[in-house]
Simulated scan of single mutants.
Amino acid sequence: MADTPPAVVVEDIRKSYGDLHAVDGVSFSVAEGEFFGILGPNGAGKTTTLEIIEGLRKPDGGTVRLLGQSPFPRDLALLPRIGVQLQASAFFEKLTAREQLETFASLYGVSAATAGEMLELVGLTDKADTREDKLSGGQRQRLSIACALVHDPDVVFLDEPTAALDPQARRNLWDVLRAIRERGKTIIYTTHYLDEAEILCDRVAIMDHGKILAMDTPAALVRGLDAPAHVILERGSLPLAEALALVGADDATENEQSLTISTRTPAPLLSALAERGTLDGLQVRTATLEDVFLHLTGREYRA
Rank of each mutant, 00 (worst) to 15 (best):
L101V: 09
K94R: 15
E300M: 08
V9W: 01
D154Q: 15
I261L: 13
V156E: 12
E182V: 01
L225W: 00
G224H: 03
L76W: 10
G277S: 09
D280M: 05
T162L: 00
D126C: 01
Q283A: 15
V150W: 04
T63R: 14
P153I: 15
V156T: 11
A2E: 14
Y108L: 07
L121D: 11
P153T: 14
I206C: 03
D133Y: 10
T278K: 15
T125F: 00
A245N: 09
K185F: 00
R183D: 07
F293K: 04
G43H: 05
T96K: 03
R203Y: 00
S258R: 14
G298M: 05
A197I: 06
G45F: 05
T114V: 14
T4R: 14
A44K: 11
T4L: 14
Q283G: 07
T186P: 11
F91C: 10
D152M: 02
P167Q: 12
G25E: 10
L149V: 11
L273N: 01
T253P: 00
E11N: 13
F92H: 11
W174R: 13
M207R: 05
T47H: 02
A113W: 07
A112N: 08
K15Y: 02
T125R: 11
I52N: 07
Q139H: 02
I38D: 09
Q257V: 08
V84L: 06
K134C: 04
E51K: 15
M215L: 15
V222R: 08
P80L: 11
A245G: 05
D12G: 10
F293W: 05
P41Q: 11
L107P: 10
Q141M: 03
E196F: 00
E32I: 09
S136Y: 06
G277V: 13
K15Q: 06
S27P: 09
R98L: 15
Q85N: 08
Y193E: 10
I13N: 02
G37F: 00
D152R: 15
L79R: 15
R142G: 06
L67K: 07
V222W: 01
T286V: 10
Y17P: 07
A219N: 05
G137P: 08
A90Y: 12
Y189G: 04
A249K: 08
C201H: 04
T186C: 10
G184T: 11
T162M: 02
V30A: 04
G45W: 03
A105T: 12
S89A: 15
V150F: 01
D75W: 03
V231F: 02
I232K: 13
G40S: 04
L143H: 05
A7V: 11
L296K: 04
E93M: 02
T278G: 02
G43F: 02
P5L: 08
G138D: 12
F157W: 07
D195C: 01
